[in-house]
């Protein structure tokens, strides 16, 4: 068994060495693939707060991913077409500034998560899975029917949004932005999972009765976790939209919700680097097997099956053994 910290360092090394190699050898597509993995990992780090620590199986995190995507799409669309978003009661204009778009994406997804969480957390188990799915589907069909922003066709953004001092159209620079954000999100996740809040959230997953009996409000703890979770996934959505320079209802689809869960399960539920490993494996399979066949998901399914049957802690569980109870 390899020490989990060493394994995590190894993962960080991959995310530094591969893009560096691609940059030196002028392989921008590889950098784009790695960026895709980083953004997916970020989305899954978000879900890992709710699912991994809190045991809340949200099958509707695409709602937040899409919300972040559309926040970027709508702001940038108005900026590139020089039309205001609204004129009354006050003038609200679009923007091409990444930091502003991120803040808007985080705020809107957090609000959406607050609303969805407040309603969904009244249920548990399979009902929670279904109701979060239902909310995401509502967002999906809403985006399809909102023709002002492309409806089913989605929105194309011609030029990537800007970040002060950087040329975001240069793949390696955009990769670095995404990588730094992912690193920051992982840092936050580590802190949160060891904090008093994380301890209570984690205990509520194992025994709700216990947490209530010591006088803590499990519902409120879960709701806060759900909001944080949605906000991080929303930020990933904004980055994903910027990576593709395109937003469409697909970002709200249930397949996407499922994929975010799959990243976590492949990597290891509740493990700090679980989402990172899962997203990297997913993007690698998508790329290499996708070249062989359109039906590459069969192999993904096989992998998932093997991991669920034989390695309860995902790939990290197989390599590093059981999670230590605390650091």
């Amino acid at each position: 068994m390899i020490n989990e910290r060493h394994f995590n360092s190894f993962m960080i090394a991959i995310f530094i060495i591969v893009p560096a190699w691609a940059y030196i050898n002028d392989e921008p597509f590889t950098i784009t693939l790695m960026t895709r993995a980083v953004v997916f990992a970020l989305a899954a780090v978000g879900l890992n707060i709710a699912l991994g620590i809190g045991g809340l199986v949200s099958f509707g995190h695409a709602a937040f991913f899409g919300m972040g995507g559309y926040a970027m799409g709508i702001l940038a669309f108005h900026a590139q077409s020089f039309t205001p978003i609204i004129e009354t009661p006050f003038l609200l204009e679009g923007t091409k500034s990444m930091p502003i778009i991120w803040l808007v994406a985080i705020a809107l997804s957090a609000l959406l998560a607050l609303a969805i969480g407040a309603l969904s957390l009244r249920t548990s188990g399979v009902y929670f899975i279904m109701i979060t799915l239902a909310f995401a589907q509502m967002m999906y069909f809403f985006s399809i029917s909102w023709s002002a922003y492309g409806g089913e066709d989605g929105l194309s953004i011609y030029v990537r949004n800007g970040f002060p001092g950087l040329n975001t159209l240069d793949p390696i620079q955009f990769y670095l932005i995404a990588f730094v954000i992912l690193a920051f999100a992982l840092f936050l996740f580590a802190r949160i999972s060891n904090s008093p809040f994380g301890l209570a959230l984690n205990a509520a997953r194992q025994s709700e009765q216990r947490v209530e009996t010591v006088g803590l409000n499990t519902q409120r703890i879960r709701l806060v976790a759900f909001v944080m979770s949605g906000a991080v996934t929303g930020l990933a959505g904004a980055l994903f939209a910027d990576l593709n320079r395109f937003v469409s209802p697909t970002m709200f689809s249930w397949q996407l919700s499922g994929e975010i869960i799959v990243f976590i399960i492949i990597g290891g539920v509740g493990r700090l680097f679980g989402p990172v490993v899962g997203a990297l494996v997913f993007v690698a399979l998508e790329h290499f097997l996708g070249e062989l066949s359109d039906f590459w998901h069969i192999y993904l399914g096989l992998l998932l099956l093997i991991i669920v049957l034989f390695g309860k802690g995902g790939i990290i569980g197989l390599i590093c053994g059981r999670q230590r109870a605390h650091e």
Binding site: R191, I192, N194, S195, P196, F197, G198, L199, A200, N202, A203, Q206, S207, Q209, R210, V211, T213, V214, G215, L216, N217, I221, V224, Q323, A325, H326
Partner: peptide, 30 residues
């Protein structure tokens, strides 16, 4: 009714946390 995956100390700290009333700390290591 205990958090079985957690350590003994973590379970007891959860209790102490309940009576301190301050769960809303996200950065300090419990």
């Amino acid at each position: 009714a205990l958090a079985m995956e957690d350590t003994v100390l973590q379970n007891a700290i959860l209790g102490a946390l309940g009576s301190s009333g301050n769960t809303w700390r996200f950065f300090k290591n419990a």
